[in-house]
Amino acid sequence: MSISQISVFLENKSGSLSEFSGVLSDNNINIQAMSVAETSEFGIVRLITDDTYDAATVLKDAGYIARITPVTCATIEDRPGSLHEIISVLNKSGIDVDYMYAFLGGRKENHAHIILKTEDDKKTDAVLKSAGIELLED
């Protein structure tokens, strides 16, 4: 039920993000969602793209280390309170969120997509689904 996310290792130094986005641009990779997690030395860029396999191949050829991780993508209404609905469902089921990010204007109008990484993506999918929350899949 999950979707594929590409995680890429970047050095935390001036120019490395620009170089990275250049590679995606040059190869016509369209980014649907993206987040950057950083430490003082390195960063992990997380991407959702149209074609995960294509993007991963391009990045690998350009010398990047990339890893494909399954993540949950919940679709929620673009209104106050809708995020809390899914987070409280997870909380009640004892599921901790490792990280999450969101994007608007994705595959469904007037909705937002929440990308969630938890310890157990199968359980997360099941819990959200039974609470009536719409999930995206590849």
């Binding site: 996310q5 995680s7 290792f9 430490t39 992990i44 280390i65 890893r67 990484k117």
Partner: peptide, 11 residues
């Protein structure tokens, strides 16, 4: 140098 073996999605 970071390697594919050591790299994970988890900071």
């Amino acid at each position: 140098e970071m390697t594919p073996e050591v790299f994970t999605d988890n900071v």
